[in-house]
Design a protein around this nucleic acid. Structure first.
Lengths: 337, 337
DNA sequence: TTGTAGGCGTTATCAC
DNA sequence: GTGATAACGCCTACAA
């Protein structure tokens, strides 16, 4: 019994007294099987505990049903929320998700993609890092679709989903002006990813255009602790900013905590704060952070429907790009509103 | 070219001027190939962009390399942290993770396991819900190993990893006594999972034994909002508890926010609070929550090493159980310490 | 060390 | 509608 623990279609066919093909057809949606055969096959399968072997099926059909999710820092609130949304959409589309954790290096993304190829993944969705051009080409050549979320890359082939980060930055400048702030700041991480930099760019240029005093500070990765450090740097300046736009909610939470608890500043009376991502904690009573909501549903929906529907092949050769708009969620970290 | 986008070992063999088996051996660790053949194969493979097809390899070797992670509410801080740890350990062990999101129902877990079988997963790790006995048997019969984390189940076969929840509850009662609290409470969710109930049991019995006034409130799922509701219920009682043990950090955060911001209570002076999980937010300045740290590393390590090393088969027939001890992390939500 | 032959479990094709 | 037969891409004896 230990020698043959796997039940194959052959076994089912034998028990049901039909041919292997009949079994196969029974489990192939839209194949023609008589009701009687079907019934007998199903019963035999049930009794034997038979399940179709997707590895073998994928081999034949040349479609594995596997979609790779490539991500680093997956335990972060924003990332895990996006991951959840993607996973759910993918499952609803009948796909199965293979999760690959990378560190922040680009070649670890390359390794992840290589694994995706080995497992004949139908598509890869990349949430962190940026693969080498040659790898991307390799994936495409292997018939794999690719989706890049919040990555900047202008190679043709992958679908790129981005947010209007620069515009968001501009909007915040306006919001601060309406709140009566004249000297403002941008708190960024050193990660230097395109979306982070775009927010900075939009904010700084708009603030300057509005005649505000604006400064920028960058430190560490985009986490809570970095936010505290950024607060120390910005709030000890000769002229203290009245409002700061944090590149990320996590930064904003750290910033707010330091501002209140260590500098005794009250938000929003003495300091206006805006974040980005709308992580769950942004809505917590201690923060009530005004922030931009990532359109997670829209992102997941776009990604999944794009890679599922077999669109025209020539379409694939073009650069496909989707630009989504984040919603500004008003809470209580900015005056007025 | 669109007709044959896949490069097979056959193509590589042709280009390298060797047989298909030589190619196969080159990519099989520990097979005997001459250095020269190996070199030529590797070169041809590189030029062609060949990658071993794991689906086909898995079919032959009867080992897919796939391990399923079955989880609901994966975006929650504790769950995502555990997920990350497991994923990393699994990857380091050369496995590839298949992520399956379930809702909280047990039959959705069953479906997930069925999928695991279809993909010939070598093992499944279950973080939420509890599969039906028959499904578990089916998995085991299909040669699949199973790990249940923080689930209660006494079927033989799966490895069960649990925490000493009841003991943790008892420890908290002692901590509260040392802080000079006489009337205490346990804030729980209605989920009623074994680990949550064990914490409650341990705490309540120990508190009673210490002669304390103890009450219990249960509401909703184990999230931030539920914590706020629980605070409302417990803090409006005729005799207000001086200390409460929350079943979860998320509950504790909600509880603390409501206590401070809506009831004007100061923690820990007027109210002592202890949580469970040690999620990242528990360390944030606004909370500084005294809590139990889940031994995530130990859990992941135990799970992965158990399902990777080919231990004796008869061992599998016994109930394997691992009982881990959570560390109490002292922060500032309890007096004394 | 190397090549040949057979099989893993499935589906697609084609006669019946 | 049904059953043989030939793939799919790979691995593993076995013989050379």
């Amino acid at each position: 019994m230990a020698s043959k623990p796997f039940i194959s279609a052959h076994d089912v066919a034998e028990r049901a007294g039909v041919s292997r093909s009949a079994v196969s057809r029974t489990f192939t949606p839209g194949a023609s099987v008589s009701a009687e055969t079907r019934r007998r096959v199903l019963q035999a399968a049930e009794e034997l505990g038979y399940h179709v072997n997707q590895l073998a099926r994928g081999l034949m059909r040349r479609e594995s049903g596997i979609v790779c999710l490539i991500v680093s820092d997956a335990a972060t609130p924003y990332r895990s929320a996006l991951l959840r949304e993607l996973t759910i959409h993918l499952q609803n589309a009948g796909k199965v998700v293979m999760l690959i954790n990378t560190d922040r290096s680009d070649d670890s993304v390359g390794n992840a993609l290589r694994q995706a190829i080995r497992y004949q993944a139908e598509a890869s969705i990349i949430l962190s890092g940026l693969p080498d051009k040659s790898i991307t080409q390799l994936c495409l050549k292997n018939g794999q679709r690719m989706v890049l979320i919040n990555r900047d890359d202008d190679q043709p082939g992958p679908l790129r989903i981005n947010l209007k980060d620069e515009e968001a930055g501009r909007r915040v400048a306006l919001v601060f002006e309406r709140a009566g702030c004249r000297t403002v700041a941008f708190a960024n991480s050193e990660a230097g990813t395109p979306s982070l930099m775009a927010r900075e760019r939009g904010f700084v240029s708009a603030a300057k255009a509005l005649g505000m005093e604006v400064c920028v500070e960058r430190f560490g990765w985009t986490g809570y602790e970095a936010g505290k450090v950024l607060a120390h740097r910005l709030l000890t300046r000769a002229i203290r900013p009245e409002a700061v736009f944090c590149a990320t909610d996590l930064l904003a939470c750290g910033f707010m905590d330091a501002a209140r608890l260590e500098f005794g500043l009250s938000v929003p009376e003495q300091l206006c704060l805006v974040g980005f991502d709308d992580i769950e904690q942004a809505a917590w009573e201690s923060y009530k952070l005004t922030t931009f909501a990532q359109p997670l549903q829209a992102i997941a929906n776009a990604a999944v429907s794009w890679l599922c529907d077999p669109q025209e092949t020539d379409n694939l050769l073009h650069v496909s790009r989707l630009l989504l708009e984040p919603d500004l969620i008003w809470r209580r970290s900015v005056r007025g509103g």
